[in-house]
Design a protein around this nucleic acid. Structure first.
Lengths: 212, 212
DNA sequence: ACCTGAACACCGTTCAAGT
DNA sequence: ACCTGAACACCGTTCAAGT
């Protein structure tokens, strides 16, 4: 049983380890152990841990399925595109968190960019405006992912009922907050995300002047 | 010259160290050295490194200046609010990066939430819709920050002129990408961000049905 | 050519010991 | 009460040595 080590295998194993053990469980030694090899053996194929994580980012983003079909309409196509990213995020949540945590940039593929620009075109938005739209939607999608992964915290008390805590706030200082305790505490990621996407797309629609 | 150690001082020093040395330069030993104290001495005031980073997140976000004035109109107020967040991000770029990189959640203050909801109210958006709007704008703002800090990478070749590389792509496969080489390579963070904000706000306007 | 062992310079954290 | 020194169990990475 001779094991042939290569970059692909190492990266794949690293993703497995992280999905099983979490971001903290990733070490060169741990990946080596999983492969039945010492940590040093991997330096022949991966120059550093940072490079390994970069490889993981590419591996994960390669799973993004960008449709090539003509969409029913540009809005349906746009929804499909952002949901494809969400699907990847839900398939590799801990690896994606690790990539963000390590400061490694997420490589967005050319096919996704091309698709986004094509959909903008269909919506009647061209040129630099289209680039801005695609980037803005990327920022929103990534930001939503951060929120879902718990990178932002609002009103998240660890002890006691959070809604009760909101109700206990000063209505004079925080009138609008106090009026919406359940809405603020309830935090359904999908609903939030879908809402934001629709908000976004309706703006694009107005911009391009086309309904379909 | 007797030094009185406390949590506030330790957190402040940690922020200083990170802004000077970068996220990688933060270690308990390094912060201790800066204070003329061993790393172990700090464990009396900060239970762990994670807790220290949490403290840094609070320290940084405490710098967010939320206006209490009546805004000229809700749009102007909204622009001011998101720009206040940007100002913080530009004041503590490396600390904010560290907070994101370490997976520590960013504590968004009550005053910012209250302000966001109040502005929604002014725009004619209430209830759970207002909560969704505030959260979406938070996601977008944070995502934009990630993009600016280099957490996402598109068409960012390290060698040669990137615009040339875009032009060298197959026009059959990437027609829209090839048509916009300069727009895609040019990456002005402020312009991108402002564009997205306006896109967002015009949607909110349509939703609430009020111009002012 | 490919992998290992030992070593180096770091970490966060614990805890008995000092003052 | 507050801080230190030594120690423990880890890291990433280098490099001479093995096969």
């Amino acid at each position: 049983m001779r094991l042939v080590l290569n970059r692909e295998l190492i990266v794949h194993t690293a993703v497995e380890v992280v999905e099983r053990e979490g971001p903290g469980g990733l070490s060169m030694r741990a990946v080596g152990l999983e492969l039945g090899v010492t940590a040093m053996a991997m330096y022949r194929h991966v120059p550093s841990k940072d490079a390994l994580i970069e490889g993981m980012a590419e591996y994960v983003m390669a799973a993004l399925e960008v449709s090539e079909d003509e969409p029913d309409d540009w809005k349906a196509g746009a929804r499909e595109l952002v949901r494809a990213f969400r699907a990847v995020a839900h398939e590799y949540p801990r690896s994606l968190a690790l990539v963000l945590e390590s400061g490694t940039s997420i490589p967005v593929g050319l096919r996704a960019i091309e698709r986004g620009l094509a959909l903008c075109d269909r919506a009647g938005v061209q040129g630099s405006a289209a680039v801005h739209v695609v980037r803005s939607l990327m920022a929103f999608t990534l930001g939503s992912q951060l929120r879902e992964a718990g990178f932002t915290r609002v009103l998240r008390a660890q002890d006691g009922d959070p809604a009760e805590k909101v109700r206990a706030l000063s209505p004079a200082r925080y009138p609008h907050v106090v009026a919406l305790p359940d809405e603020l505490v309830d935090n359904p990621p999908d609903t939030d995300f879908e809402f934001g996407v629709e908000l976004f797309l309706s703006s694009v629609e107005e911009m391009g002047g086309r309904t379909g």
